[in-house]
Structure formats: C-alpha cells, structure tokens
Write a protein that binds this DNA or RNA. Structure first.
Lengths: 197, 197
DNA sequence: AATATTTGCTAACATCCGTTAGTATATTAT
DNA sequence: ATAATATACTAACGGATGTTAGCAAATATT
C-alpha cells in the first residue's frame, strides 16, 4: 500500500491538485481521466476520493487559485502611485512571472475554465470580466495622460493577455531563451507598442 | 426522414464539418459528442457515418483546412518584393481576417489540434513549426535591415500569433468595435511595438 | 416504371468514465 | 498495547461515448 508522499507544508490534496494541473495541461480537462491522474499520483483511482470531492473540484481549486493571485496583484498595482504605463508594465511582468513559475496552473485556468460547473463558472467569468475592466481602465487613464497611444483599451487588454499566453509555447520549446530575456523582449514589444513617444 | 440540407457547391460532408467546427469551438473536441453533433445537424448520430469515417476525421479536416490556407498565404507573402515590416503587416492582417471570417475553424485548429492522432498530429506540428520559422525569418530580415527593433524573433512570433488569437474574445464580446477598427488597433499596437523608429 | 445508389433510421456493441460501497492496512493518539 | 483515524485497496455501478450492423426510405439513374 503505497501512500501519497507529501512534502513539508503541503497536504495530500495539494499534491493531487498539482498533479492534476500538469495532467489537465497536457491532455485537457475532459481527456484527462481520474485513472490517468491516479497513475500519475501513484495510487488507485478510488483512493483519490479520500482527499477530494470530485474531478470538477480539482478544476475549481486550480482556476480560483490562479484568479485570486491575479486579483490581489491588481489590488496592489491599482493602489500604487505610479504612472499608468508603469502599472501596465507591472501587470505584464506579473503575468509573465506567473506563466513562467506556475505554468501548469495558469495554463489550465486560461484554457480549461469552460468546464467549470455553475455557480463556479459564472463566478469565474465575472471575476475575469472585472479584471479586464480594471486593466482597461488603467490603459484609458494612460491615454488621457498622453502616456499611451489612442487605441481601444479593451482591445489592447485582449492583445496583452493573449500575447502573454503565448509563453505556453516558449515554455515547452527546446531552444528557449532565458526567462529574464523573454520578459525583456515581451516588455519591449508590448509596452513599446502602447507607448506614445 | 429529414435529409441534411445542402447549399450550392457544398457536400453533406462539408455541412457536417462546419457544424462540427462550431461545436468543437463551443465545448472542446473531447466534450463534444457525436450525438451533440447529430442533433445540431438535424439527424441521428449513426447517420453521420454515411458521410464521415470518424470523429477524428472531422478534426483533421478542420485543422488541415486552416493550416493549408496559412501556408499558401505565407508562400504568397514571401514571394512578394516588399519590405520585411510590410510582410509582417500582411501576415498579421491575414491572421486577423481569418480569425474574423473563419472564426470557428481557426479557433478549433488553434486550441484542439492536440487531439489529432498520429500521423496527422506530427504532420500538423511540423507544419506549425515551419510556419513559425518562416515568420521568424521575415522578422530577422527586418532586424538586419534596421526596420525592426533588435528582439528575439521567435519570441516576437509567439507574441504576434497569440495576440491575434485574442480575437476569440472579441468575437464573442457583446460590445464589439467593428472588424476594421479592430484590425487597425491591433496593427498599431503590434507593428508599432516591433518597428524601429 | 424498374433498378441502383445514397442517405437515413433503430438497436446494440464494447469500452471508458466518474464515482460509491465495503473492507483492509497503515499511521496517530490515548 | 489499544483504540481511533486516515488512507489505501478491490469490485462494481450506472451512464455516456464512438461506432457498427441491418434495414427502410428517399433520390438518382436507366
């Protein structure tokens, strides 16, 4: 009887969630089976249910874990007394950092949230919509202050967020430049594209 | 017994593929069942198999249809005698146009190709890799000609392609700006971010 | 009109899925 | 050491899935 090994400061449930994130990223939520997950954890499928309620709960944990981190960062950035363009840069850097260091969770939260069930689904969608609105508001502030080009702010947000999602490909690429170079390149292109000089 | 209605110049198979694209976009390939598809086509599930070989074949059709269009455009752009930055702009415009006018297929090809089965899977991945290499080569040419900022070309390609993928959100948004405005905004940000002035 | 072909239907299959029940074993608390 | 709890196992369930077989109706061809 092989128990799930746990590291310091982490429950068995957290181990399962983490393995689930990797699996959902690789195969997609629907295509990843509980039996797959069990194998990756090193246990029989039924045993997982001593630690979790359902497969969907795993997706909740992943998606809201990520969403909460972004929301807190947004609170922090908004509260700061920096220019709009600096705020944008802070957010982009955070996104890249999250994508680099919590790759699996962020990726899954981005692409698999559709499979959440209500009320989590609507909750998640609302949070996502709010985040984008707040991001767009910062860009609009930048436009008013003549720091940023006159563009459609919601469109700019879409571009930024999805561009960052592209790190997914970088992450799995064989010849990757290092993370700090990657960040600099992205900032150059994205902030450079927004900035009014 | 209600037959599948066909428009001029389209087979019944094409109708099915088109409905499949819409369904795969909405639910994801794995979550969309053949019974779902049958209902959307207006027929029983088994009847679909008079026109197609398998569910996966539908995904082949969608993914390679899209991939071929992009490859042909790349041939055309490469052959033209324009500056590198103009080539980049042509490609971006084509991507946006494809995303706006063939939304479902492009979206599915982008996000669901994982579920292709070999040998189609490796074939598709190779095509995708080649396309990006050719795109990156154009950017590198632009850097040599001092049209484009000194950035990592593969990273720039990732950003561009994923940024365009963001049109997905625009497409379903309720308050969308019109397609031509969208394109202009994207060109401003993306080409503006690359250009060395 | 007769025949051949295409397209649809119902029924059923084998397989996989998430999950539960019941039980055995390992760990922790007393 | 004993009791209590946490964790794992085997077995099985009901339901969904992709697909096939066999047959009926619609359409196309002669």
């Amino acid at each position: 009887m092989a128990r799930i090994k746990i590291e310091k400061n982490s429950s068995r449930k957290e181990v399962i969630v983490s393995k689930a994130a990797a699996l959902f990223r690789e195969k997609g939520f629907k295509a990843a089976s509980m039996r797959d997950l069990a194998e990756s954890v090193g246990v029989e499928a039924a045993s997982l249910y001593n630690h979790i309620k359902s497969k969907t709960e795993l997706l909740h944990e992943i998606c809201f874990g990520v969403a909460n981190r972004f929301m807190h960062k947004m609170d922090e950035v908004e509260a700061g007394s920096t220019s709009a363009i600096e705020k944008v840069e802070q957010l982009i850097r955070f996104h890249i950092d999250e994508m680099v260091n919590h790759y699996e969770e962020v990726y899954v939260s981005d692409r698999e949230w559709k499979h959440l069930a209500d009320p989590y689904l609507s909750n998640f969608q609302t949070q996502r919509r709010m985040y984008r609105k707040r991001f767009a508001a910062i860009i609009e502030e930048g436009i008013r202050n003549k720091e940023i080009k006159k563009i459609d702010a919601p469109t700019a947000v879409l571009i930024l967020l999805h561009a960052i999602g592209g790190i997914e490909s970088w992450h799995r690429s064989t010849q990757k430049i290092n993370a700090s170079n990657l960040t600099d390149n992205m900032i150059t292109i994205l902030v450079g594209g927004l900035e009014l000089k």
